[in-house]
């Protein structure tokens, strides 16, 4: 007869219970699960080709990036030149995408605006990854009290409405492209820290790491040879999602006129201009182009990120 007190606790329960602050599950969920069992039907599905959408997405990001990089060299009108003889024109050979209510060339404003989105998007995440990602990698592997408090701190910081901090600092420090990039970059640190830390933590006690440890590998060696290669897919995938997120934040700020100083174009303030002063009904193109570009850019980045995620076999976590 089985013992009345036979009580079993499961690993799952331990993991769920794990000493964490509320909401931490969110990012801790994003752990890598590599399944090699032949019985797993995902095995069949995950290895499918990247697909045409992936390449189209990559192409669009490349086009936007090239346009942004070579904006100065391209044969474009001055984005801020107001031609009062050509107000609210439709697309023509001279103005490929038309002009706005002040007679400015929509195409060149779009191209120069792309710079802002892309630079803020990619550079700020690079900053966040360099600081937060590295910190998370080390902290997650080493564990201990320092790691615990850093993790708790990052959670509390994430509770604070970040937009307040960003707007406040931008307002005081200055509305230049690079300052905004740095501020937003610093803002992404706690987020990227948490994600990379969770991933690093999930590898810290894997067999291959323990094996390396018993063979006398130094901590830096384990970190960079054993943990890092496994964390990179998660970091890369999540990093891309964050790029999209950051572009949205910059766009929102720009929409309110709180990003780069006007009249420097940015897609967010182009959209805002398209919305104002009855432009909507008179010349919807002002609104259409930047909205479309922004939509396609975010779509592309997300698609690329998702295909990478599938490739790396990472469970869908949380943005």
């Amino acid at each position: 007869m089985p013992d009345d007190r036979e009580l079993a606790s499961t690993h799952a329960a331990d993991q769920l219970l794990g000493d964490r602050f509320p909401g931490m599950a969110a990012t801790d969920e994003l752990v890598v699960s590599r399944q090699s069992e032949a019985l797993d039907s995902d095995d069949i599905l995950l290895r499918r080709p990247l697909g045409i959408l992936f390449w189209l997405a990559l192409a669009w990001v490349a086009v936007v990036a090239l346009a942004a990089i070579f904006a100065n060299v391209l044969p474009l009108h001055n984005p801020n030149f107001q031609n009062y003889n050509a107000i609210n024109q439709g697309p023509s050979f001279h103005y490929l995408l038309g002009t706005d209510d002040l007679g400015r060339d929509l195409l060149s404003r779009l191209v120069f605006g792309a710079r802002v989105s892309l630079i803020v998007g990619f550079v700020s995440v690079a900053i966040g990854m360099a600081v937060g990602g590295t910190g998370g990698l080390v902290s997650g592997y080493l564990g201990g009290a320092v790691d615990g408090s850093l993790n708790a701190l990052s959670f509390v910081i994430l509770a604070y409405p970040a937009i307040v901090a960003v707007i406040a600092i931008v307002a005081f420090w200055g509305q230049s492209l690079w300052k905004i990039t740095i501020i937003i970059g610093v803002g992404t640190i706690p987020l990227l820290f948490r994600v990379v830390r969770a991933s690093s933590l999930s590898f810290a006690n894997r067999d291959f790491v323990i094996a390396a440890k018993t063979m006398g590998a130094t901590t830096p060696r384990i970190l960079f040879r054993e943990i890092l290669p496994n964390v990179v897919p998660v970091a890369l995938t999540f990093g891309l999602i964050t790029v999209a997120g950051v572009i949205v934040i910059e766009g929102s700020l720009a929409f309110l006129g709180l990003s780069v100083k006007l009249p420097t174009p940015s897609w967010g303030n182009l959209i805002s201009e398209g919305t104002s002063n009855g432009n909507i009904s008179i010349n919807p193109l002002i609104l259409l182009w930047p909205s479309l570009c922004m939509f396609l850019l975010l779509l592309s980045i997300n698609l690329i990120g998702d295909r990478l995620r599938q490739r790396f076999d990472i469970r869908e976590g949380l943005l």
Binding site: A244, V248, G251, S252, F255, G268, I271, S272, G274, T275, I280, P284, L287, S291, M294, F295, L296, L297, L298, L299, N302, L303, D306
Partner: peptide, 18 residues
Amino acid sequence: TFGLLALPPFVIAPILVA
């Protein structure tokens, strides 16, 4: 849903209004 994800409020709201 990727399409939806690529439509943050500042993109979709003006279009909805329009």
